[in-house]
Nucleic acid binder design. Structure first.
Length: 431
DNA sequence: TCTGGGGTCCTAGGACCC
DNA sequence: TCTGGGGTCCTAGGACCC
């Protein structure tokens, strides 16, 4: 039996086009064909653009205040980010993708790798057209799909599918007769795994296109770009080195941080913000059944200002790993007190849990044992709070340590309603 | 006045052990 | 006073991703 051909590995990379902008459009059809940008937390920089906004030359990562005149001139629609909405729309898209492949790796909020093993080559494009139409019809989100025998090539195919209008958003590079020509159209900086630094480095050595990178010397690449770079060029040659990942694995590290809307000076306000970040980090811990044995806190001033600069971080070890919010806040406040210096205008604070530990294998402390009763009571309290906050929205129940006024709180002046996750924000159809 | 946030992997170098 | 080699583990820093 020759089933080696049937077993040819095939990856599809599904990518939602201009995802955040597309989400806004789903609930406001007036935005069709209009330039849209979506802002980061604190309405700071531009993190997503519709095609029309890209064509106006608006750059990714540009600070809003520097782009404002350009935006006003062209009547660009501006939105604060609405991650609750985008997260929910993402879940809907991913659920649909699971219907089309037994193996789906959710790679980011708007991207997923699908395994298409056992799909005959000539049917892959038709199959993916079907996926594309279904997602469009059921969610309103437009997607592009790249297909190839390696993940890196699938990413490249996806890029090309977006670039070349005649492809209608789908390209299969497997055994493609013009693969070399196509790879020549792609800049090295468009390749997955080649960032700004490496792109510059490669270009300075006369490697400009994906095709040239594919033909670079193994030894030279590994020397300058580590084993990861070597994997990238092997993948460009069609040798699969990066497998689909099991994305049910718990996160190895957890971070929660935010810049403030106004400069913060007092220890008290920093404590409130650190308590809030600790609460968020602890929620993430519990949601993946992990605990923390260490917790780090960092604070920093505004590096863009001329005012005196200070930033620092401290890590404290807990006597016993835990996922209990009040305990974690106690320790993160200890860490904060170690590094706080009065007289600075702070811009940002954050809490990091450098390593997560599975809760069922945590070490108990022999010297100060927590009684089984207390342990179970605490666990119950956290479970109840998590349930209520999930049902009624984050921070419905919160600790007093987070503060009431929260004047440092993130600015989000142009956020659209959370149409799909809040009863009070559901859109109303007019007859 | 206004410049994001949350992750991953790899390597080099130091500490420590035998 | 001189002085080896090999292994492991951990951390910081740098690259990357979205």
């Amino acid at each position: 039996m020759d089933n080696s051909k049937l077993k040819t590995r095939l990856f599809a990379l599904v990518d939602c086009n201009n995802f955040y902008a597309s989400c806004e459009r789903v609930f406001n059809p007036n935005l069709r064909n209009k330039p849209i940008v979506v802002l980061s937390n604190n309405d700071g920089i531009i993190i997503a653009r519709s095609q029309e906004a890209k064509e106006l030359g608006i750059q990714m990562g540009a600070p809003l205040f520097k782009t404002q005149a350009h935006i006003d001139k062209h009547n660009v629609y501006v939105f604060s980010s609405n991650f609750t909405l985008y997260g929910d729309m993402s879940n809907r898209v991913m659920r649909i993708l699971h219907r089309f492949s037994p193996e789906v790796e959710i790679y980011s909020i708007d991207e997923a790798f699908l395994s298409l093993i056992n799909l005959k080559l000539d049917t892959s494009t038709r199959y993916c057209t079907h996926i594309r139409e279904t997602v469009r019809q059921w969610t309103g989100i437009p997607i592009s799909i790249g297909i190839a025998p390696t993940k890196t090539l699938a990413k490249a195919a996806n890029k090309l599918a977006k670039k070349i209008p005649e492809l209608n958003g789908i390209l299969d590079l497997t055994d493609h007769p013009k693969i070399n020509e196509l790879l020549n159209q792609l800049s090295v900086s468009d390749i997955w795994g080649i960032g700004r630094k490496y792109a510059k480095f490669l270009q300075s050595h006369n490697i400009h296109t994906a095709m040239q990178l594919k033909n670079a010397s193994d030894k030279w690449i590994q020397k300058h770009m580590t084993i990861s770079g070597l994997r990238t060029i092997w993948e460009l040659r069609g040798i699969s080195c990066i497998n689909l990942e099991d994305d049910t694995q718990p996160r190895k590290g957890i971070l929660s941080s935010r810049s403030f809307s106004h400069p913060v000076e007092t220890l008290n306000e920093l404590k409130e913000s650190v308590a809030k970040h600790t609460t968020i980090a602890a929620e993430k811990l519990r949601s993946q059944n992990s605990s923390a044995a260490q917790i780090s806190v960092f604070i920093t001033t505004n590096r863009f200002n001329n005012s005196p600069q200070y930033s620092n971080s401290a890590t404290v070890s807990l006597s016993e790993a835990t996922d209990y919010t009040p305990k974690l806040i106690e320790y993160s406040h200890k860490a904060l007190e170690k590094i706080f210096k009065p007289g600075y205008l702070y811009k940002k604070a954050g809490v990091m849990i450098p390593q997560t530990i599975p809760s069922d294998s945590t070490q108990k402390n022999l010297l100060t044992p927590c009684s089984e009763n207390t342990y179970h009571t605490n666990k119950k309290i956290m479970e109840t709070i998590d349930r209520l906050n999930l049902r009624w929205g984050r921070a419905t129940i919160k600790t007093a340590a987070e503060g009431i006024k929260q004047e440092w709180k993130t600015k989000m002046e142009k956020r659209t309603p959370r149409y799909t996750t809040r009863w009070d924000e559901i859109p109303i159809a007019k007859c």
